[in-house]
Lab assay of single mutants.
Amino acid sequence: LPHTAVCLVCGEAGKEDTVEEEEGKFNLMLMECSICNEIIHPGCLKIKESEGVVNDELPNCWECPKC
């Protein structure tokens, strides 16, 4: 993702460097949905019932829970 990318919900950049544990890092890193192209911190999504499908081949790419 470009350095200028920010979260659609909170308007902040990736914050994964501020935590140690892997789950915390994931919730604070910016992810781009391969379907709707929205860039968001997974932790900013209010959807709890399902998780997005992470694409292991492309960094910061997933199918968000909304899609």
Score class of each variant (00 low, 15 high):
L1A: 07
L1C: 15
L1W: 04
L1N: 15
L1R: 07
L1D: 13
P2E: 15
P2L: 15
P2M: 14
H3A: 11
H3Y: 05
H3S: 10
H3G: 15
H3R: 15
T4G: 02
T4V: 00
T4P: 00
T4E: 03
T4Y: 12
T4L: 00
T4N: 07
A5W: 13
A5F: 15
A5E: 01
V6T: 14
V6C: 15
V6I: 14
L8F: 09
V9K: 13
V9R: 05
V9P: 01
C10K: 09
G11H: 04
G11N: 04
G11M: 05
G11F: 10
E12H: 01
E12Q: 13
E12W: 06
G14T: 06
G14R: 12
G14S: 11
K15W: 12
K15Q: 04
K15F: 04
K15H: 02
K15C: 02
K15M: 14
E16H: 02
E16W: 02
E16F: 03
E16V: 06
D17K: 07
D17M: 15
D17C: 12
T18W: 05
T18V: 02
T18N: 11
T18F: 09
V19C: 15
V19H: 06
V19G: 07
E20G: 12
E20V: 11
E20T: 08
E21V: 13
E21F: 02
E21W: 04
E21C: 10
E22R: 11
E23Y: 04
G24T: 12
G24M: 15
G24D: 09
G24N: 14
G24R: 09
K25R: 05
F26H: 05
F26T: 08
N27D: 10
N27L: 08
N27H: 03
L28N: 15
M29E: 04
M29T: 05
M29W: 03
L30W: 05
L30Q: 05
L30E: 06
L30P: 04
M31H: 06
M31E: 02
M31W: 06
E32G: 10
E32D: 05
C33V: 00
C33M: 02
C33D: 01
S34T: 13
S34D: 08
I35V: 12
I35R: 11
C36P: 01
C36M: 02
C36E: 01
C36G: 01
N37H: 13
N37V: 00
N37S: 13
E38R: 13
E38K: 07
E38H: 02
E38D: 05
E38W: 08
E38G: 05
I39M: 14
I39E: 06
I39K: 11
I40S: 13
H41M: 00
H41G: 00
H41R: 00
P42C: 04
P42W: 05
P42K: 05
G43P: 03
G43F: 02
G43L: 03
G43M: 14
G43A: 13
C44P: 01
L45A: 06
L45C: 05
L45W: 03
L45I: 04
K46R: 12
K46V: 10
K46E: 14
K46Y: 12
K46D: 15
I47S: 11
I47E: 12
I47F: 10
I47P: 11
I47M: 14
K48I: 11
K48W: 09
K48A: 14
K48G: 10
E49N: 15
E49Q: 10
E49A: 13
S50D: 13
E51R: 11
E51N: 15
G52A: 15
G52P: 14
V53H: 05
V53M: 10
V53C: 11
V53P: 08
V53L: 09
V54R: 12
V54H: 01
V54T: 14
N55V: 06
N55G: 11
D56W: 04
E57Y: 07
E57N: 08
E57D: 13
E57T: 11
E57W: 05
L58M: 14
L58Y: 09
L58F: 00
P59N: 15
P59R: 12
P59V: 12
P59H: 01
P59Y: 02
P59F: 06
C61G: 07
C61M: 09
C61W: 07
C61Y: 13
W62E: 03
E63F: 04
E63V: 12
E63Q: 08
E63I: 11
C64Q: 02
C64I: 01
C64T: 00
P65R: 04
P65W: 04
P65H: 05
P65E: 08
K66A: 04
K66Y: 02
K66Q: 03
C67H: 06
C67L: 00
C67R: 00
C67T: 03
